[in-house]
Every structure is written in structure tokens, then in C-alpha cells.
């Protein structure tokens, strides 16, 4: 399992696997928003939590179809499916690898972009915490979506349609945590819910994703 994780990470970083792409997308979305809504600092700081979360979510979505597509095309996926490693483990590793290559950089970059949007000082801790707790769920849900659509031509658009509704609870709790942080309120409840979603999806979604993969490899 560790070897698979290491392989996925090196592939993602090395061969133009879209490692920096998600980050760049995140940056561009955040930069575009002030052009759309105007430069008033008060407005920006009010909508900053939502913008940062939605942008992070879209950036994570962008690289989802790579999770299985490359392995599916070059025939690695059937090999992984017949290897002694359970397929549930493989999907779990794929989800973790996706998080390390997109979710983690997004989390680390988010505070810097918070400055651009005039985010309240008190919200930075909550922004970091909520993204760190929430983006793993985004990766795992996305892995499930990618497993559903792996065999399809033009699967990318369909996958967004399937995955985005599943992202709703994560987005709500994540943005709510930051918003409460910005207002100086206690944000532990949404953070706990966020952690619950992440743990739940890591516990259950590998099974759903691997059963979908098995169907697609049949």
C-alpha cells in the first residue's frame, strides 16, 4: 500500500500530472471574484469564506478524472484489481494520494489567498482547520465519482454532475465554520460535523468506489 501511494505521488508530481494545475486554478478563481463583485473591502471580507471554499472545491474537482483514467488507459487498473491488495485499499490509497496532491496544497495556499479577499484576522485559524478537515472528504467523494465514470468517454462532465451534489454537506459545514470564525463565534460544531463527514466517507466510500470499479472492469 505504501508503495502504491509513493508511486501515485511521484507520478502526480513528475509527469505533468496536474500537481500545480489545481493550485493555479484556485488562485485564478479567487483573483477573478473581485473583478466580478467589485473591489469594496467590506463586501469581499464578508463573502471571502464562501469564495475560498467554493474555489477549493472546484479546484479539487478539476483533477478528479485523473485518479483512475491514466491507470485505466494503460491497463494498470485491472492489474491492481487482481493484485493481493484488496481493491478497497487501492481506492483508499487513491483518495489519499489525491488529497496529498491537491487538498493539502490548497489548504496551505488558502491563507495567502485570504489576504487578497480581506478575510477577517480571526478567521484564518478556522479556514486552515476547516480545509484541513474537509478537503479529505472532497478527495474521497471524488474518488467514488471517478470510479463510477472511469470507463466512460466524456466522463468528466458527467462526473461533475454526480459529484457536486455530494459535495453539498461538506461545503456547507466548511464555509459555515469559517464564517463563524470571521464573526468571532464558536465554530467547533461545524468543524466536528466536517470531521464526521470526512471520517465517515473514508470508512464507507472505499467500499462503494471499489464495487463501482469492479463493475467497470467486468
Amino acid at each position: 500500500m505504501i508503495a502504491l501511494l509513493r508511486r501515485d505521488l511521484t507520478l502526480a508530481v513528475r509527469a505533468g500530472g496536474g500537481f500545480g494545475l489545481g493550485l493555479a486554478f484556485f488562485l485564478i478563481v479567487v483573483v477573478l471574484v473581485p473583478f466580478g463583485v467589485g473591489p469594496e473591502a467590506a463586501v469581499l471580507s464578508r463573502i471571502a469564506p464562501g469564495i475560498l471554499w467554493v474555489a477549493a472545491l472546484l479546484a479539487a474537482l478539476l483533477s478528479l478524472d485523473r485518479i483512475f483514467a491514466l491507470d485505466f488507459e494503460d491497463g494498470t487498473l485491472p492489474l491492481l484489481a487482481t493484485s493481493p491488495l484488496p481493491l478497497e485499499g487501492v481506492t483508499l490509497i487513491k483518495g489519499i494520494a489525491h488529497w496529498i496532491t491537491t487538498g493539502l496544497p490548497l489548504t496551505l495556499a488558502a491563507p495567502a489567498l485570504g489576504f487578497l479577499l480581506n478575510l477577517e484576522m480571526s478567521a484564518y485559524v478556522w479556514l486552515l482547520a476547516s480545509l484541513a478537515l474537509g478537503t479529505p472528504a472532497l478527495s474521497m467523494i471524488g474518488t467514488f465519482g471517478a470510479a463510477l465514470t472511469v470507463g466512460l468517454r466524456r466522463g468528466g462532465l458527467l462526473m461533475s454532475l454526480l459529484v457536486l451534489p455530494l459535495y453539498v454537506p461538506t461545503l456547507i459545514f466548511g464555509a459555515e465554520a469559517v464564517r463563524r470564525g470571521a464573526l468571532g463565534l464558536d465554530a467547533t460544531t461545524p468543524l466536528l460535523m466536517l470531521a464526521g463527514i470526512t471520517l465517515g466517507s473514508f470508512a464507507l466510500l472505499p467500499f462503494a468506489a471499489s464495487s463501482a470499479l469492479r463493475v467497470n472492469l467486468r
Binding site: 453539498v168 456547507i172 462503494a208 463501482a212
Partner: peptide, 22 residues
């Protein structure tokens, strides 16, 4: 595949209901 999606979707639909309430 749609059956798996329906089951996962149901869980997340219930979750969304509570999230939205909150």
C-alpha cells in the same frame, strides 16, 4: 452503477438535509 450511486446519494441527501437545516 446507478444502484451504487442511489445508495450513496441517499446517505448524502439525508446529510444535506441536516446540513441545510443547520
Amino acid at each position: 452503477l446507478t444502484s451504487v450511486l442511489c445508495i450513496v446519494g441517499s446517505v448524502f441527501a439525508v446529510l444535506s438535509r441536516y446540513a441545510v437545516n443547520f
